[in-house]
Write a protein that binds this DNA or RNA. Sequence first.
DNA 1: AATTGTCTCAACCGCAATCAT
DNA 2: AATGATTGCGGTTGAGACAAT
Length: 237
Amino acid sequence: MVKTTYSNKSGLKKGTWTPEEDKKLIAYVTRYGHWNWKLLPKFAGLERCGKSCRLRWLNYLRPNIKRGNYTTEEDETIIHLIQSIGNRWSIIAAKLPGRTDNEIKNYWHTNLKKRCQHLKPKVSNSKNQSPTEQEPKPNNNISPSSQSTDSCASSTFPSQFSINTDTRKKMFDIIPEDDDFSLVDAYQLEPVNQNFWLEPYMVDIWGIHCDILVPEHDYISPVSDIELWSHCNEYFA
DNA sequence: AATTGTCTCAACCGCAATCAT
DNA sequence: AATGATTGCGGTTGAGACAAT
C-alpha cells in the first residue's frame, strides 16, 4: 500500500519514503529541529520538497507516535469529538496524544464511520464555521519568542530551535535561489559567512553516511548524540 | 492457482491562514 | 495595504495487502 518512489520533472522525489531518507530526516530534525521546512531538505540532503518532509516527520517519524490498536476510550473520544466539532482532525488529534490527524482521519473513514452511520455530527465542516466559533489558531511565527502550539513542535523541541528574522534573512541572502546545494559540495566550500556556517554535522547511522548542514550556530540543538541515537534506534528497532 | 473486488493507509494536492516584507 | 512566502489543514488518490470467488 505504498506509492513507488519516483522523481518529478523538477528532480524532487515523490512517493514512498525510503529508510535512508527517513534516517536523514530523523537525524537532521532531531538535532536541529524544523527551523524552515522549505530549506530543510537542502540542508538535510534530501531530494524532497519541504512539504513532503514536514508531512513525513509529523505523521510518521516524530517521537512518541502510537500506531494502530485504538483503545475503546480513544474510539469514544474520536466519535464524541466528531459529533461535537465535526471533522476537525487536527483538534481531535491534539486530544489524543501520540495520534496524528492523518491517522485519525484514515481510522475514521475505514473503521469508525461504518460503526457510526446513525450518528449525525452537530457540526458538519470546520470551514463553514464563522471565525468567532473557531478555536484560536496556533501562532506559526518562527521567531524565537513565539511558541508553536503544533502538537509536534511544542512537545518535541524547545524554543531555541526556532530562528529569528535576521537569521532567516541571512540565509536567503547566502543561498542562491537555484542552488541545488549538493551536500558534498557544501561541505567542501569555504563558508560564505563565518558567523553563519559551521562545519557540517556528519553522522554515520546504521552504516549510512549522512551529511547535515548546521543551520545557525546560535541554534544548535541541545540534543546529545546519545539522544539522537536513542530516537533513531527507537524508530528503526 | 488465478482472478477479481475490497480495504487500508501513506502520500499528494489544493486551498486558506498566517506572517514577513 | 499589498504582495509573496511559508505553514497547516482536510479531502482525495492510488498501490499493495487481503479476502472472496
